[in-house]
Design a protein around this nucleic acid. Sequence first.
DNA 1: TCTCCAATTAAACAGTGTTTAATAATAACG
DNA 2: CGTTATTATTAAACACTGTTTAATTGGAGA
Lengths: 205, 205
Amino acid sequence: MGRRGEHSKSEIEGMALDAAEKIIEAEGYPGLSARKVASAIGYTVGSLYFVFKNLDELVQRVNGRTLDQLYLTLEGSLSECQFPQQCLFALGSAYLDFATQHAHRWRMVFEHQPQSEGLPLEIHEEKVDLLFALVEGQLQLLVTQRSSEEIALAARALWSGVHGIAILAITRHLHTEGQQSVQQLTEHLIGHYLSGLSTLEPKAC
Amino acid sequence: MGRRGEHSKSEIEGMALDAAEKIIEAEGYPGLSARKVASAIGYTVGSLYFVFKNLDELVQRVNGRTLDQLYLTLEGSLSECQFPQQCLFALGSAYLDFATQHAHRWRMVFEHQPQSEGLPLEIHEEKVDLLFALVEGQLQLLVTQRSSEEIALAARALWSGVHGIAILAITRHLHTEGQQSVQQLTEHLIGHYLSGLSTLEPKAC
DNA sequence: TCTCCAATTAAACAGTGTTTAATAATAACG
DNA sequence: CGTTATTATTAAACACTGTTTAATTGGAGA
């Protein structure tokens, strides 16, 4: 039926991901549906299932692209800073900006729970590790003479903190006004944590 | 039809909330459905809508109870500590335990996005503020001579951090092994943050 | 030109949240 | 005690969901 081969399989895939992103950005994850995506790209649900195994798989693919985009954004934020502490502030600020500007898509990365347990979670762990690596790089420059395990631990502790601020701010659980004070909160956390990191003796952690 | 007045309105309400909690704890939020709750308490969907306006309202009620339970747990954890820093560690540990033991219900508190925007978010802000107050109390004891605004900011920064660790740990985005190292991560964050808090001059924040 | 395969669809199934009208059981009233 | 209202409860419907199925159609290869 109609227009066979008009779009290649990977073209349809890309169109579907684009459409899904738009829907999610506009209506949030609950607003996403297979038929909506299909009709947005001028196809029927069946064609979606010809390209994706599941709707879960589609969501995971969208999440993968979101993580890629987030990585590029964070990496880009490092081009406008000099000293490690400055750069960690920049990373935090960029993370918060991205989370608020693409709130729905960003939340979906961490909130979506696939029902059919497949394998693509490993891919995500890889991409999340890349994000952590950005933080580790700056911490490495800041506190020398520390094992990579300690650096990894520190990066996860600090960045979980920034992540928590972002989530609570977006879901309006912080009960603090405006975006300015959220940035303030982030700088407060990072600043005090780093101060403690350089104060406490290296062996104590 | 049948057994009219066998249970009062508030009894049915309580039964429904209990049943919903069990379902969520067992299958997660996606596993919850009106018909499941109804049949679990021996009624029909219609009776649910006679008691609750929405399924959203039922979820919000469950979330309210979860927050109450969380508060009691955290408050209880304070009975086994003496010094503020010790108590903050205890609070963090208890928060993490609760989050992992009731992962599905705890996640729902922060992840559920109601479609029909009602009013009961204010209730939640109140209960969340109560949680923050527990942290503020310990910080108050730890660092004297600081305005309540500074204490409130510090409590939110620190506890967002603990919250972030809990979320990322539960959703397995931390890529760190076992629960023991998650506790380690929390103590690391709290310890270093507090160290920085007492080091940095009071006016600098 | 005929065949066969791949792409696409329409239709179905079981499930969802929510609303509706019908109904049974009780309470109120004469 | 009989009748009427009211109120709790249900069954059924509606529009929607994810997913599967069988049926088609278009084009490539022989």
